[in-house]
Amino acid sequence: MFGFTALGVLLAMALVLVRGLAGPTVYDRILAVNAFGTLTVLLIAVHGFLSGRPDFLDIALVYTLINFIALIAVTKFAKFAHLGGPFEQRSWSDV
């Protein structure tokens, strides 16, 4: 059962990779990267149960977290062409 799931996840990874390579717009690629990250998390979870050691799920947690931050960086770059902004003086209520 878990084997079939792993197979499905791997297949989906390959399809997502094709979409990421083919593009054509940057948004296709952003979606592809995000979906790939999610599939990686799924694969780790499935593999944990497949090998009878589901105690490494907190690694999957890191993947989700990191993928989220990387995705925000990519979308911000795609929209504003830099990562550091806003630079103007701001109110201190956000700190």
Partner: peptide, 29 residues
């Protein structure tokens, strides 16, 4: 191979992220 083939550097950066994710899942396996 995709990294070598792609010319858009933003896509290259994103694909190096995918490469790392794949490598990381391989280490888990």
């Amino acid at each position: 191979l995709g990294l070598v083939w792609l010319r858009n550097l933003l896509a290259v950066v994103m694909f190096s992220g995918i490469f790392s994710l794949t490598a990381a899942s391989l280490w888990v396996v």
